Every structure is written in C-alpha cells, then in structure tokens.
Amino acid sequence: MSTATPLPKDYPLAPQGGMPLLILWAILLAAMGLPLAFLAGDKGVAALASPRAWVGPLLVSLTGVAVSLAYLRKRITLDAGGLVVRSTFYTRSVAIGSLQLERARIVDLGEHRALKPALKTNGYSLPGFRSGHYRMGDGSKAFCLITDPSRVLVLPLRDGAQLLLSPEQPRALLDALKQRAGDGAA
C-alpha cells in the first residue's frame, strides 16, 4: 500500500453526439426573431427602433449565453476524497466507500430502458445530453452526466441512488475506482 496521497486524475467524457448547442441556439434565435418579426409586421419596422422592443431578445440572449457556458462545464475527477462529477450547474462528490463497485456496470441505455433517465427532477438536458438529478425508468434516483447513451457507467450507491456517467473510457474509470477502493481496504 502506498502512503502517498493519490493525485487527482480527470477522465475525459465520451464525445457528444449531435449538435446540442446548435439546436439550443436555433430555438433561441427563433424565440428572439419571431416576436420581433410580428412586431415589425403589426406596427411597422419603426417599432423596432424602440429600446423596449429589444428587452426580450436581450434577456433571451443572456440566458442562452449562461446556458451555453454551463453546458461547457463537464468534468469527472478521481481525487483523494473520491469521485467528483462537475456538470453544468451541478457538482456531486462521492466517497469511494459509498459506491457499490461490485454492482457497477457499463450499459447501453437503449437496451437497458429501466436505467434511462425518465423524469428530470433538477437537471439540464439537451438532445443527447443529460446532466443533474433524474428519476430513472425504474423509479430510482440518479445523478447523471451522460454524453453518449450507448456506453454509460452505472455506479450504484449504498443509499440506493446511482451515478450514471459517460467517460470516454468507462472501463478505465471503473478499474481506477476498484483499485482505489482496494487501496483503502488494505
């Protein structure tokens, strides 16, 4: 057993499928443009010169920037204290001892529908991306950071909840967690 404190190690996320931010901004641009188009159609283009006409689009733009910046905040780190998952507006820290690693598995959510996030209780989602707190198809609670639903590391917790993560190499993270748990037990 090593007495040195292990250095934190980041585990890259699986590549994101699709274009979630492009879809988000397409929706936001429509939300900004359509009211302006209706205003210009009803009252003429001169109505667009009013600063009041631009308050809504400005607020939508600022919200879009905040949501986009949050989307970029994604990280899985294994450090001396355990596993730390940072995702959008959320951070979840889990001690190695609170994981049931003997029950951990790597799954395709398309095949394991009971593990698929079904109800967002406090989360963030875009097409192909899930972050935050969810209820699964089987009713259990989970904290999710899913970028690729075809390879998700499911980590059951001793309190009955789960972590669902999409590291680029799920097996490498699981092996590192098991090694760290073994070092702590020795």
Score class of each variant (00 low, 15 high):
residue 94 V to D: 08
residue 183 D to H: 04
residue 172 A to Y: 02
residue 81 G to I: 03
residue 83 L to I: 09
residue 185 A to R: 15
residue 18 G to F: 09
residue 158 R to Y: 11
residue 10 D to P: 01
residue 169 Q to N: 06
residue 184 G to Q: 10
residue 102 E to N: 12
residue 70 A to R: 05
residue 142 A to G: 10
residue 117 P to E: 10
residue 165 L to D: 12
residue 98 S to A: 07
residue 4 A to L: 13
residue 159 D to A: 05
residue 182 G to A: 14
residue 116 K to H: 14
residue 109 L to T: 07
residue 35 P to K: 07
residue 174 L to D: 13
residue 18 G to C: 06
residue 136 M to R: 15
residue 1 M to P: 05
residue 16 Q to P: 07
residue 32 M to Y: 11
residue 26 A to C: 13
residue 172 A to T: 02
residue 8 P to Y: 04
residue 97 G to R: 10
residue 154 V to N: 12
residue 159 D to V: 05
residue 183 D to M: 07
residue 122 N to W: 15
residue 39 L to V: 14
residue 119 L to E: 13
residue 81 G to K: 09
residue 143 F to V: 05
residue 26 A to W: 03
residue 9 K to G: 02
residue 102 E to S: 14
residue 5 T to K: 00
residue 70 A to C: 08
residue 37 A to L: 15
residue 22 L to D: 03
residue 77 T to H: 02
residue 168 E to H: 01
residue 34 L to G: 07
residue 44 G to H: 09
residue 147 T to F: 11
residue 100 Q to D: 10
residue 164 L to K: 03
residue 182 G to P: 05
residue 17 G to M: 11
residue 8 P to F: 03
residue 138 D to G: 02
residue 166 S to A: 08
residue 118 A to C: 03
residue 128 G to L: 12
residue 176 A to G: 04
residue 60 V to R: 01
residue 147 T to I: 11
residue 67 V to M: 14
residue 85 V to A: 05
residue 6 P to S: 00
residue 47 A to C: 07
residue 130 R to Y: 14
residue 99 L to S: 01
residue 95 A to W: 01
residue 25 W to D: 05
residue 2 S to R: 14
residue 111 E to M: 06
residue 138 D to L: 04
residue 90 Y to K: 06
residue 82 G to L: 12
residue 174 L to M: 06
residue 178 K to L: 08
residue 48 L to P: 02
residue 128 G to P: 09
residue 127 P to R: 00
residue 41 G to A: 12
residue 109 L to S: 12
residue 99 L to E: 01
residue 157 L to T: 06
residue 59 L to H: 02
residue 8 P to A: 04
residue 114 A to N: 09
residue 62 L to D: 04
residue 180 R to S: 08
residue 116 K to M: 11
residue 102 E to H: 05
residue 181 A to R: 11
residue 152 V to C: 13
residue 3 T to L: 15
residue 62 L to F: 08
residue 131 S to P: 11
residue 81 G to P: 02
residue 178 K to P: 06
residue 131 S to W: 04
residue 42 D to F: 15
residue 185 A to N: 06
residue 64 G to F: 00
residue 107 V to A: 08
residue 28 L to P: 08
residue 133 H to W: 12
residue 114 A to D: 15
residue 105 R to T: 15
residue 59 L to I: 09
residue 144 C to V: 15
residue 82 G to C: 10
residue 180 R to P: 01
residue 5 T to S: 03
residue 13 L to I: 09
residue 54 W to F: 11
residue 68 S to K: 06
residue 134 Y to E: 00
residue 131 S to A: 15
residue 84 V to C: 05
residue 109 L to D: 00
residue 41 G to V: 02
residue 79 D to R: 11
residue 47 A to G: 04
residue 115 L to P: 10
residue 92 R to F: 11
residue 173 L to G: 00
residue 56 G to S: 12
residue 176 A to E: 11
residue 12 P to S: 03
residue 159 D to F: 07
residue 99 L to T: 00
residue 184 G to K: 03
residue 184 G to I: 03
